[in-house]
Design a protein around this nucleic acid. Structure first.
Lengths: 191, 191
DNA sequence: ACTCACATGTAAAGAGTTACATGATTTT
DNA sequence: AAAATCATGTAACTCTTTACATGTGAGT
């Protein structure tokens, strides 16, 4: 499944500009699908060529000149078809885990910063999920709720795992660091 | 980080043929990094051109003619550099979740098969982790243990979430199925 | 005046997937 | 003898990423 198809999906909830579609990706899909302007705008142009979406130039609204996209019947059918036929893959590509796999080649401060950066990203993704929870309230479909809950569960599992196991990497390093573990003044492992 | 870099990482554990490297990817990295022959073989050719690996043709072994790759000093340095500098991203691209996000457009049997297929894949990934656990025993580095444990935690969290919440998708369908909800005849609220 | 958010696009480069194409060796 | 595994590679295609390039409207 490509960005084109998912744009059709976003438009099934209502008309939108390319910019708004990008915002939707960021807010709703960020934990399982990313797309930038560089793939969204060309995708919309192709969809318009193929008659799967219709474009009109906003005249009166707050942003005159903006292109508002609308799903056509053909587009709706194409999308319904895509979600029926697409293989339900779930692919992870994690440089984060590659780096930690080779923790024995890294200095402790690199391990620390890699873990902390990941925790920060996890919290950003969780914050996006909470924001949508608060905005949409109770009127979301079970599918949307399921996907949000799935994301939250996995993100929290990741955070918990990192917090619980990061200490195991303390002895992993092949490079000397400022370990400061001689007196260990009670609580220096606070994340 | 690309396949080239990770090939260097695999070779840091010892010499290997392209085929063996692919096997290593499948067994050890399957839950966070995938690569096929179509990317591994060209990658190895490039690395050889750049002097980051050395190639020799196996003469005496069980597979005469096989190309055995060996990391050079330059290759070792390049890899060490890569894991120091690469951004620790963790990217998910999930058609699985996209499909379920639009569960309101799907017939119940599609939802069922999508979930079941995912559970099957999760179990395959967990089986690969268990296999490596059994093979390698206790002599693995903390980094490798951490990554394996991380994968196991997330995969189990995913399986648990699916098992615990799949029933919530029963009423999600916009298409009639053999719902078998005869005991709850007051709950057919279509989206 | 300045900055942030809105808004749209293109071009080149980078990377991976899929299908094609072939052949030897080992195990059943 | 057949099937599975070992073994290597290419070519075309698809797709995304990154950087570049530009301009308006709203709020401070």
């Amino acid at each position: 499944m490509d960005v084109r198809t998912l744009c059709l999906g976003v438009l099934s909830f209502g008309d939108a500009t390319g910019y708004e579609i990008k915002k939707y990706f960021e807010e709703a899909f960020s934990h399982f699908f990313v797309a930038g302007f560089g793939s969204i705008y060309p995708a919309l142009a192709e969809l318009a060529d193929e008659g799967l979406v219709r474009v009109r130039n906003q005249t009166g609204g707050r942003r005159p000149g903006a292109k508002v996209y609308q799903l056509t019947e053909a587009g709706r059918t194409a999308f319904a078809d895509a979600i029926l036929r697409t293989e339900p893959r779930h692919k992870v590509r994690s440089e984060f885990l590659v780096i930690l796999y080779f923790a024995h080649m890294l200095p402790p401060e690199r391990i620390r910063s890699v873990l902390d950066e990941r925790l920060r990203d996890i919290d950003l993704l969780l914050a996006a999920l909470d924001r949508r929870d608060a905005e949409a309230g109770t009127d979301r479909s079970p599918g949307i709720e399921f996907v949000a809950g799935f994301g939250r569960s996995l993100l929290e599992a990741a955070r918990t795992y990192i917090d619980d196991h990061r200490h195991e990497l303390d002895t992993a390093s092949g490079v000397e660091g400022d370990s400061a573990d001689h007196l260990a003044p009670a609580a220096n492992a606070g994340a």
